[in-house]
Write a protein that binds this DNA or RNA. Structure first.
Lengths: 393, 393
DNA sequence: AGACAATAGTGCAGGGACCGAACGAATGGG
DNA sequence: CCCATTCGTTCGGTCCCTGCACTATTGTCT
């Protein structure tokens, strides 16, 4: 009852992975692709159908001789939910095994000043709303937070100091779902390798420009965590000795060079609306991009400085991690058109052939929640027997 | 015949891993520890005995009631062989599954000036000698080279330029063994996590001081390779902008700061025997250590500079990889007593709590061959059925 | 000294999962 | 209208693990 069940699980997972990576196909082709027998595949598919994970689709094109096969495809019977708690918003996204977005919402919320308990209550209510408004059964929940996480507890959160020590999972206990809590940049990195132009890339570095600089590193297909869970933290790399003082108390941290604060300081005087933290960040970035497009010298110079600073740091990351691509998210993606050229120049001067390994994220602000939903769904692909039979209609 | 065999393999591997990690024990205890049945364990052990991988040992102490068990322990019926080809020597080491060294040799050889084919012939002859002079059956061969490797071909080798493009595995084709070729620092890193004080550490950074600076990174128990196989290459990190010119043509590379050349330049004038490349490196290092112990100001200052430089770079590595420990090998280990204090000071100033995460390698010059032998042995632990029955007496 | 409890290891029937071959089903071509 | 071809299912066989019964060996208690 122990090890043969594992064989079954592994083979169910193999069929599921095959359908996910290569799209719908007939049982006969599944048998070829997995190396299993047609008989076994039939049995496996029957079980997956019963669990609501796959469904029979259309007949295959009758273009050739022989009996046409019945396509087997992933079903949307279950979904994973990603929640992001950030400084000024709450985002939720649900993903089904096909990769289809089943829910997406974003709620402006002044998380920084509200009590964590209240924010968690709101978030959990939103999750309940998601689960009530669709037929896919939720199998898991992942919460992204802008800080370092130990287990399900926030350990550090520079921009959400009230949240340090909060057990985020406890806020969703009434959902009765497995809850994972993780760093937002890490989840974004996972999102990048799970969908979009860099799907299935095994080695990727994700950099996100927010107030600070966040990073997530995927090596060998696995998220780099490190011995204490803070691996891949790029913001406080000491790259430029003896420079500006960072919020962490040290000097020369990378985020003092390429963080949002550094950009705005370089691009605008104190009275400038760009530097008004009361205004919406996206609007300010749009204004900045407008000035750059209009050819404003100071703005262009500031952006070039950021781009060069990014290149200097990215050179270190490329040399150490050797990623297939460095993906820029957050404000870096917003202003990418002005950053990429100086970034590539600085990178090319330091690491050979690295200039064309930089790309802008196409996932926008949904990266973290998307990664979270993907993580929540992962156990289904790893072990399909975790989904009870007849989970869906 | 396909998947149930995999079950068998996995269970054989589980028993083997249990014995390796926890030492000899009775079948009954093996059953408890693996979760398998006593009957199954008996069957598995019988098969492993037949393959020469385990053997029955002494009776267990009759200190308590009940029938005493018969200890089952790893046997030395097979071995993995590690070969290191370096600038001025050829080293070979054989390891059996118990971790016992079955052979160890080191031959001074001017590899840099000899033809690769000749060196390979010598190396292969030594391997044949190893195999002839003991009863353990060789199951694999790993060759460490001081450079980057693609497949079994040397891609770059700063100190062995003649070897670029050489297919190292081809030189051992007559052995009829699976041959792996890998970077020496990578193998050393694996050696550090497979034996010694840091065995089973999942996240470790290994730094070796040679002519250049080599690095190997283990994250999550896996060697970091990167998308093109050059991950973890620390020598050419651009840390100090616009400084000394490196052999790679760029400026500010880390190895221009902490490489052997930098140390010797700082510690001795051109005429000094320390800087005579004709003399044995170990002797020169011993001389240097002697001067330092005698309190020579210039020597101490040079060493402190190296230590500080190491700390600056190590800070970046610790921040990014978050290793449990940074292990220093090569000449860093030789002169560790003079380097550790300034290194720790520089590290502590940049990353909190990192100072006690530095240690000196205890494997000395055998690290690379030891890691190679370990890698060669790995398939046996992963899938014990690869070893034919009655492989040993 | 003898009975009993405790622990180690083996033998055997049973069941789960996969494999291989044979069979019915559906389609295009001659 | 028959046949080749391909798809999917059914059925017997094999492998391996499990659970239980059984033997073997030792210490302890009476």
């Amino acid at each position: 009852m122990q090890t043969q069940g594992q064989v079954r699980s592994a083979n169910l997972a193999a069929v599921l992975a095959c359908l996910r990576d290569g799209g719908p196909r007939s049982r006969a082709r599944l048998a070829d692709d997995t190396g299993l027998t047609k008989a076994t595949v039939s049995s496996l598919v029957a079980e997956l159908v019963e669990r609501g994970l796959v469904a029979e689709g259309a007949q295959v094109r009758p273009g050739s001789v022989g009996r046409p096969g019945t396509l087997v495809e992933l079903a949307g019977g279950v979904c994973g939910i990603g929640v992001e708690i950030n400084v000024d918003y709450l985002a939720v996204l649900a993903l089904d095994p096909r990769g289809a977005v089943r829910w997406e919402s974003r709620l402006a919320l002044d998380v920084a000043v509200l009590a964590p308990a209240e924010v968690l209550a709101r978030a959990s209510a939103t999750v309940s709303e998601v689960r009530a408004n669709q037929d896919a059964t939720a199998v898991g929940l992942t919460v992204a937070v802008p800080g370092q996480v130990q287990g399900t507890v926030v350990r550090t959160a520079p921009n959400l100091p009230r949240w340090v020590g909060t057990d985020v999972a406890a806020g969703f206990a009434d959902q009765g779902l497995p809850v994972t809590v993780a760093n937002d940049a890490d989840l974004s990195a996972l999102a990048e390798v799970s969908a979009g132009p860099h799907a299935h890339v095994a080695d990727l570095v994700y950099l996100t420009g927010e107030v600070g600089v966040g990073g997530g590193v995927v090596t060998g297909g696995q998220l780099l965590r490190g011995s204490t869970g803070v691996g891949g933290e790029v913001g406080h790399l000491a790259l430029t000795p003896g420079d500006a003082v960072c919020g962490c108390g040290r000097t020369g941290c990378w985020e003092t060079v390429v963080g949002l604060a550094a950009l705005l300081r370089a691009a605008a005087n104190p009275g400038d609306p760009l530097r008004d933290p009361g205004l919406d960040l996206e609007e300010r970035l749009t204004e900045l991009a407008g000035r750059a497009r209009a050819g404003d010298a100071r703005t262009l110079e500031a952006l070039a400085g950021i781009g060069t600073g990014l290149g200097v740091g990215a050179a270190v990351l490329v040399a150490l991690f050797d990623p297939a691509v460095v993906v820029l998210g957050g404000y870096f993606a917003h202003l990418g058109e002005f950053l990429l050229d100086p970034l590539r120049a600085a990178l090319a001067a330091r690491v050979e052939g690295a200039a064309d390994r930089v790309a802008l994220s196409t996932l926008g602000f949904t990266a973290a929640v998307r990664g979270g939903a993907h993580v929540a769904l992962q156990p289904v692909f790893d072990n399909p027997t975790t989904v009870p039979p007849e989970a869906s209609a």
